[in-house]
Amino acid sequence: MVFIAKTTTPNEWKVIANTISTVVEEATFEATVEGLSFRAMDPSHVALVDLNWPNAAFDQYECDKQYKLTVRVDEFAKLIKRAGSKGSIEISAEDDDYLTLKLQNGYKKEFKIHLIESSSEASPIPKLSFNTKVTLKEESLEDIFNDINVLADHIIIESTQEGITFLGKSDAGQASVTLEKSSEHLLAMEVKENSRATYSLQYLVNMVKAAGAASENITAEFSNKMPLRLEFQLGDSGGRIHFYLAPRIEER
């Protein structure tokens, strides 16, 4: 068995470990000749994370065929944290028993953790076509979600040709944030059809915090009463994380 994936900074792995830990306790990575991927839903099947990290994004990547590598996320995340803020990470496997993490930051550290048997089922990507697509700075979207979250647990996102509006309401009050099409914070916007849908803010706030950490911009896509998809870049590496979130039926 040959699998080696090396990056010169620990940032991408940190983002991945944090992102994955928001949805599952055990993570199954799929390594192929093309690169590394991960896909899983959270236990309630409301959210799905889909990671795609092509081989070209690594400093070194070797994989001779398709492997499934399953780890306990809390263990894995703790080891990734040992890399500090700089330094390279090399992850490799020689057999089905262990995953080896080599961290280099002044001195060499080597950890081996047990690979475990995967108990999760395959998570198919939902079949969706999106009528609205907007791109914002990561900070802007995080800021907007936090604004609405002060007063509400759910967010209504509404798009028209004129712009996009984020709304929240609860017994405590109402909040709204509007970005007109001309706003400098709206880096790109395409609305094929006006769209309106409601989502749980708890998921969004956690996900933007975790997956957004290495992403300059975030692209959000959705349609009327349909799931939302957020796209995060994995630094400059060429990898990306898709986060799908199922909508809520709007309460009247």
Partner: peptide, 14 residues
């Protein structure tokens, strides 16, 4: 009840 009636699941769209 509210959560189960109001919150859709990803699997509802596959």
């Amino acid at each position: 009840i509210k959560e189960n009636l109001l919150q859709k699941r990803i699997t509802d769209f596959s």
